[in-house]
């Protein structure tokens, strides 16, 4: 059974400030408990099936300009995007 402390820890890792504990943490716990149904699916010994996409199939990694950043960024000054300071 997942604990509320574990969920609170994950919410910090994914960088989401949770104001309403009941609205989020308790309901996420209910959801994860529901996911535990997967334990009875009997797939422990099954192999994972993954699709391989050959590099040759990928499009050329070429830059495509949409006219610069200035029209799409709110805090844009002198060619730089302004962001909060980093510790």
């Amino acid at each position: 059974m997942v604990t509320e402390e574990e969920i609170e820890s994950v919410s910090k890792l994914v960088r989401i400030k949770v104001a309403d504990h009941r609205e989020h943490i308790e309901k996420v716990r209910d959801m994860i408990n529901f996911f535990e149904m997967l334990d009875s699916a009997g797939v422990e010994d099954d192999e994972l099936v993954m699709d391989d996409v050959p590099v040759s199939r990928l499009r050329e990694d070429a830059h495509e300009s949409f006219g610069g950043l200035s029209g799409y960024v709110r805090e844009y000054r002198d060619g730089y995007v302004r962001v909060p300071k980093m510790d």
Partner: peptide, 8 residues
């Protein structure tokens, strides 16, 4: 909720 779920 789904972001927290996905992280978990």
């Amino acid at each position: 909720r789904r972001m927290i779920l996905g992280g978990y």
